[in-house]
Design a protein around this nucleic acid. Structure first.
Lengths: 172, 172
DNA sequence: CGGAGATACTTAACATGTTAAGTGAATACG
DNA sequence: CGTATTCACTTAACATGTTAAGTATCTCCG
């Protein structure tokens, strides 16, 4: 744990204050952020051409394989927070890419589904998107890609329920 | 049983429209996003207590190991876009956590450095931050963590210069 | 010298992330 | 029954992501 001021690419500057800390650029959050950005950079231009943001695309994709879902369930599937989803659904609805109707049994719930237009838009984007994904897979390697995904899943699972104020913490 | 349409794996719904596509939740971008979120979720509460956002913390960390940097260089180090950095620096400067002065040789450039107060703040956050990182490492495994970082780096490198309009494309 | 073009940032505008508060509709329960 | 609680969203407010413009300097070159 005693790490000296490594000072990697910092020539002769009298760097490093007291606090040591791991080399910033090698932290796990940064690695994940950079990797994700490298991947998304490939997709954004194509989505943009179709007038879609990354999140809007996530929602359409999540909707494509089901009849209809509640907003909360969709938030979990598309990995978006409620407020973000609320705004995006409002916009997608205005563009007639999705449809909404309140559930009969429970007036609080609103069932969301993709519209005909939405399906058409997806069909026009999917080919390019799949081609990009294929190229990424080819470059990185199918085997390694699978391994990476497995590790990411493990990481996620190993951190599940760590900081979520475990129902038993008397603190705060 | 508060949940009626459980159906997690979409049991009997007449799912799937024409466009097939990979299972959405298993796409690489989603895996990366979820993994990163699982990690950041651990850090955010602590940073928040100190009045720092994730990005502000990235900037302070990047500044901690050097005397001063130009804004552009800092943007690369902290992996932030210029506009975001511009705004954040304005705020951090107002809070006296950083200092800025224009370079003598080139009036366009502005050299940024962390202030005494900034160093103090870092010192108060670092312990908790390091403890969290240690716990994550313990849970996931030191060995696996290193492997994961290596793979993430490879992924990044394998995609370097793929969609960046390669100086040679006559298109557009 | 002087203006065209490149640089280093900053502003602007729009979309999402993130947390907190607000609203209307179910539910629990006394 | 009636109301306190819980639920499912939606709004609000502030910070960042992302792309496009704008501004002040610098550099290059005729």
């Amino acid at each position: 744990m005693t790490k000296k001021p490594a000072d990697p690419a910092n020539g002769g500057a009298p760097a490093a204050r007291q606090v040591p800390m791991r080399d910033f650029s090698r932290s796990l959050p940064m690695s994940l952020l950079r990797a994700r950005e490298a991947v998304m950079r490939q997709f954004r231009p194509s989505l943009r051409e179709h007038g879609l943001t990354e999140q809007q695309w996530r929602i359409l994709r999540a909707l494509a394989s089901i009849e209809a879902v509640e907003v909360t369930e969709l938030a979990r599937t598309a990995f978006l927070l409620g407020p973000s989803l609320s705004r995006i659904l409002r916009d997608l609805e205005a563009r007639n890419l999705i449809e909404r109707k309140t559930a009969k049994a429970d007036q609080r719930r609103s069932m969301v589904s993709i519209s005909k237009e939405g399906v058409k838009l997806m069909a026009s984007v999917a080919p390019t998107s799949e081609a990009i994904y294929a190229e990424i897979t080819r470059r990185f390697g199918t085997r390694k890609l699978a391994e990476l995904q497995e590790m990411l899943g493990e990481l996620e699972r190993s951190l599940a329920g760590l900081g979520a104020s475990e129902e038993a913490s008397p603190e705060e």
